[in-house]
Amino acid sequence: MTVDSNDLKLAGRLATAAGELLLDLRATSGLTGKELGNAGDFRANEFLLKELARLCPDDAVLSEESSDDFVRLEADRVWIVDPVDGTREYGTEGHTDWAVHVALWERDGQTGVGALSVGAVALPALGVTYVNDGAPIEPADGLAATPRGDRPRVVISGTRPAAFSEAVAAAVGGELLSMGSAGAKAMAVVRGEADAYVHAGGQYEWDSAAPVAVAKSQGLWCSRADGLTLEYNQRDVFLPDLIICRPELAETILEVTRQA
Rank of each mutant, 00 (worst) to 15 (best):
V237P: 12
G183W: 03
A18H: 09
A194E: 08
G180E: 02
V198H: 06
Y130P: 10
N45W: 04
F238R: 14
L49Q: 11
F70I: 09
W206R: 04
K50A: 14
A11W: 04
A115F: 05
D76L: 04
V131M: 05
L23Y: 04
A184D: 07
P124D: 00
L249N: 02
R246Q: 13
L10E: 00
E251L: 09
D85Y: 04
A250F: 11
R224I: 03
G12D: 03
D236M: 01
T159Q: 05
V102Q: 00
G94H: 02
L36R: 05
R148M: 12
D226Q: 09
K9T: 12
L23E: 12
E74Q: 13
Y90N: 03
E93I: 11
K34A: 15
A99M: 01
A210V: 10
D236L: 04
E46D: 14
P161L: 11
T96K: 12
S178A: 15
F47A: 08
A145K: 15
A250E: 03
D108I: 04
G114E: 04
A99F: 02
C56W: 09
S178C: 15
T32G: 06
P161Q: 06
G201S: 10
K34F: 14
R246I: 04
K50T: 14
L126F: 10
A250G: 01
G40W: 10
D150V: 15
L52K: 01
T87Q: 00
G180N: 05
P136D: 01
W105C: 03
V121Y: 07
Q110S: 15
D226H: 08
E51A: 13
L104H: 07
G183N: 06
G114H: 08
G202W: 07
E248I: 07
E138C: 00
D141V: 14
R54N: 11
L177E: 14
Q218S: 11
T87A: 00
Q218W: 03
R72T: 07
D4E: 12
W105M: 02
A209K: 11
R43Y: 07
L10P: 00
L25H: 07
E175G: 10
L10H: 03
A11T: 02
L239A: 12
C56M: 11
V3H: 08
A15W: 01
A215D: 06
A60M: 08
G142W: 10
K216P: 02
A60V: 10
H199R: 05
D150P: 09
A11H: 01
D69Q: 09
D59C: 13
A115T: 12
V100L: 01
E20Q: 14
H199Y: 14
G180C: 10
D4A: 15
P136Y: 00
A210W: 05
I137Y: 02
T129K: 00
A53Y: 03
V100E: 07
A209P: 04
E248R: 09
K9D: 13
T16H: 11
W206P: 05
L176K: 08
E106Y: 10
L31E: 05
L23N: 10
P240Q: 05
A122C: 11
T257F: 05
A75L: 03
T111K: 09
R258L: 00
E138Y: 00
A167T: 06
G33C: 06
I243H: 00
L8T: 02
A184H: 08
D4P: 09
L55R: 13
C245R: 02
A11D: 00
V256F: 01
T96Y: 05
R13T: 14
L123P: 15
